[in-house]
């Protein structure tokens, strides 16, 4: 992973990022369908259940992901 990119799971609440790469895990197919695509803007809205899950906003929709799932997605921080 290049220094500019971090896993989605490392975002802090309130920060925005651009999705740079999606992993190959077949479970991510569903996420691609609902807007988690390279180039899409993503924002971490809140952490839930002691950080076990996080709610991200992509394309005006709120989606909850497990940390392990979010770690499969790479993002580039936005200014």
């Amino acid at each position: 992973m290049s220094p500019q990119t971090i896993p989605l799971s490392d975002l802090t609440v309130g920060t925005h990022a651009l999705i740079s790469k999606m992993g190959d895990d077949p479970h991510l197919c569903y996420l691609r369908c609902i807007g988690f695509c390279p180039g899409a803007h993503v924002e971490l809205i809140r952490s839930v259940s002691g950080g076990a899950l996080s709610v991200y906003r992509v394309d005006d929709a709120d989606v909850a992901l497990r940390q392990a799932t979010a770690a499969l997605i790479s993002v580039r921080m936005e200014g």
């Binding site: 569903y30 899950l53 497990r66 392990a68």
Partner: peptide, 9 residues
């Protein structure tokens, strides 16, 4: 293994 979980709100 732990499976992925994603749900739209």
């Amino acid at each position: 293994d732990d499976s992925a979980f994603a749900i739209e709100l």
